[in-house]
């Protein structure tokens, strides 16, 4: 699509795009280039010189059991966060959609956790499950269950998953509810007249018609779990115990800033770059399809 009417001028438009161009060049392209460049080198222990190692950093990374484990951790974490937050949101949206009135009130009650930062959500859940003062920990103890996410890897993963999914329910709820309300009533009522019960209607009509929303949310939530949950991990577990919750983004930070292993951190950045690229392309492919929908 192009505009028919245009203004004349050469310097003005260049001047207009300059602020964005400058910031993008300085803070996006130069650092990304640096990451790619640094990933080919290993700095000496004193940081005085760099030794070219080609793809050595990548070879080392991909054979490093900790890095491979981090891939698995990220996959498990992202899938769980996506399933939990989308599952709960879909359930609530289906319920709210069944109301003749009042769904707006529930929407107001449910959307605002979107505004709670992942790091703050992390602190809230950490507080509830704190091994010393946590309320939930205490009541679990009364029931005979000894909760300790500081030592138990599975519990640590469970806690960061729930804390990450919790704040995300609002977002998914909003999109699911909008998707549900866009489904023509007549279609569902026709099925009801034919004798289809709620669950049959949901399985054969509602869920298929909802699939564009579901697919969109799937991609968006995976991106969220990959990149925006750093705050949750950092506040609750700091990647532990024994790296059980060290997702890829956390590892870039831990190796680059805490461990000062710049070559490896840069190589990890490049790998993440490729992953974001793939996710972005999937997202856009889908959005193109949705436009023609």
């Amino acid at each position: 699509m192009e505009k028919r009417v245009r203004f004349k001028g050469l310097w003005l438009p260049l001047l207009l795009v300059m602020p964005q161009l400058l910031i993008t060049a300085v803070f996006f392209f130069y650092p990304a280039g640096q990451a790619i460049w640094q990933s080919l080198f290993i700095p000496d222990p004193f940081g005085l010189s760099m030794r070219y190692v080609g793809l050595g950093n990548f070879e080392f990374l991909l054979s490093d059991p900790f890095y491979r484990a981090s891939f698995v951790t990220t996959a498990v974490f992202s899938i769980l966060v996506t399933l939990v937050s989308m599952g709960v949101a879909l359930y609530l949206a289906v319920l709210a959609d069944r109301l003749i009135k009042g769904s707006g009130t529930y929407r107001t009650l449910l959307i605002w956790p979107y505004a709670v930062a992942p790091a703050v959500a992390g602190v809230l859940w950490l507080f509830m499950f704190n091994t010393r003062v946590g309320v939930v920990t205490w009541y679990l103890g009364v029931l005979g269950y000894d909760w300790n996410h500081v030592l138990n890897q599975g519990e640590a993963m469970g806690l960061v998953v729930v804390a990450s999914a919790w704040g995300r329910i609002s977002y998914n709820f909003l999109f699911f509810l909008a998707g549900l309300q866009a489904i023509p009533r007549s279609v569902i009522e026709a099925a009801a007249i034919d004798g289809a019960r709620f669950w049959t209607r949901f399985r054969t009509i509602v869920f298929p018609l909802l699939s564009p929303t579901t697919f969109f949310l799937l991609v968006v939530n995976i991106v969220y779990a990959f990149f925006e949950t750093f705050g949750v991990i950092h506040t609750i577990t700091s990647g532990g115990p024994q790296q059980a919750t060290t997702i890829l983004v956390y590892k870039v930070y831990a190796d680059g800033f805490v461990g000062q292993d710049l070559g490896s951190s840069a190589a990890q950045s490049v790998i993440l770059l490729v992953i974001v690229g793939i996710l972005t392309i999937i997202q856009f492919k889908y959005i193109e399809r949705r436009v023609h929908y």
Binding site: P13, P31, A32, V249, F257, G277
Partner: peptide, 26 residues
């Protein structure tokens, strides 16, 4: 104009989490 458009588009693929160390250096 087209080049500029694509340059902006590419920034979608560069969240700060991906380029933290070099961006910090800058």
């Amino acid at each position: 104009r087209r080049l500029f458009f694509w340059l902006i588009f590419l920034t979608l693929m560069l969240p700060v989490e991906v380029r933290i160390v070099p961006t910090y250096e800058v």
